[in-house]
Design a binder for these strands. Structure first.
Lengths: 153, 153
DNA sequence: AATGAAACGATCGATTT
DNA sequence: AAATCGATCGTTTCATT
C-alpha cells in the first residue's frame, strides 16, 4: 500500500476506467508512453489495491432487475454486538449493492436492486426479522438518470 | 435488444462480473461449456447492450476521494424545461456518480464522490446557482460498508 | 458445438539510453 | 533507474466441419 500516484498513473487509470478491454499498446499510445512502463504501473496499482477489480457493468433492466430502492435506516441500538450482526446481514444479502454508515440522524443508507416491489418487500421483511431497526424509509427509483463507477481523476 | 437470456448466459455474466480479466477457456470451464459457444454468447450480449461496459473499480480513498455524500433533493419546479436543465447539469458533473428520479416527496437522490467536505460545498454552490431547487439534504457517509456493481443473477 | 489455424496481445528478459 | 526492443507464449477471433 501507500503507493505514490502521479499524473501518468492517473491517466492510465482513467483509460482503464473508460475501457478495460483495450490493449496495452492502445493505452500506452493514449497516455503518451509505451507498453512496458504502462504494464509495470498497472501491475503496481493492482498490487497496491488501487485497482480493486476488473469487471463488466450490466444492464439491470434487461436482466429483470426493474426495481431499485434507496433505503434510509434509523436505529436505536448502537451496541457493537448489534452492529456486527447488522453489517453481516447486509454483506450477505446480494440484493444490497451499496451500504453506508452515515453521520447525522439517519444511521444507514442502502441501495437495493431487485426484480420488483414484491421482491423488495421480501427483502425488507427478512431484514427486519433478523435485526431490530427503529425506522425505515424506502425511496423508489423511477428513473436512473446517471450511473457510473468512474472517478473523476 | 430483446435478447432472450437463458441460464447459461446468466452463468457467463456472473463470471464476467466476478472477474472480467479471466480467459475464455477459464470461463468456459467454470460454466461447463467450451470456448466458441461462450465467445458467441458474449458477443451477442455485448451487441444487445446487456454488457454495457468493461471497466476497473478503483479504491476511491487511495485516490484522494475521501468524501461521499448522498444528496436528497426536493424541488417545486416540475416543468419539462427546468427538468431538462437539471438533468443536463447532473450528467455533466463528473463528481455525480449516480442520480435517480424518485417516487414520493423526495424528488431526486444523488451520490456524489469528492475529495473532501470543501469540494462538496463547491459542487453544491455551483449546482444551486445553475438550477433552482427547493430543499436539499446532504447525508455524509462515514463508512462504506459494502459497494458492489454485481447483480445477483 | 467443436476444431484448428491465423492474427493479435500480454508478458518478461535482454539490451540500450 | 527506466525505456525500448523483440522473443515467446497464451488468447482471441473466425472459417470450416
Amino acid at each position: 500500500m501507500a503507493l505514490r500516484i502521479d499524473d501518468m498513473d492517473k491517466k492510465i487509470l482513467g483509460e482503464l476506467q473508460r475501457d478495460a478491454a483495450q490493449s496495452l499498446d492502445e493505452i500506452a499510445k493514449r497516455v503518451g508512453s509505451s507498453k512496458t512502463p504502462v504494464w509495470n504501473r498497472i501491475r503496481k496499482l493492482k498490487e497496491a489495491g488501487v485497482i480493486r477489480q476488473q469487471t463488466v457493468l450490466l444492464d439491470a433492466e434487461a436482466l429483470g432487475f426493474e426495481a431499485c430502492f434507496f433505503v434510509l435506516i434509523r436505529t436505536s441500538e448502537h451496541e457493537a454486538d448489534w452492529q456486527q450482526k447488522f453489517l453481516k446481514a447486509l454483506r450477505e444479502r446480494p440484493e444490497v449493492l451499496e451500504a453506508h454508515r452515515l453521520a447525522g440522524d439517519i444511521d444507514y443508507i442502502l441501495k437495493v436492486q431487485v426484480q420488483n416491489a414484491r421482491a423488495y418487500d421480501t427483502f425488507y421483511q427478512a431484514l427486519i426479522s433478523e435485526v431490530k431497526v427503529h425506522n425505515v424509509t424506502a425511496l423508489l427509483s423511477m428513473e436512473e438518470i446517471k450511473s457510473t463507477s468512474m472517478l473523476p481523476l
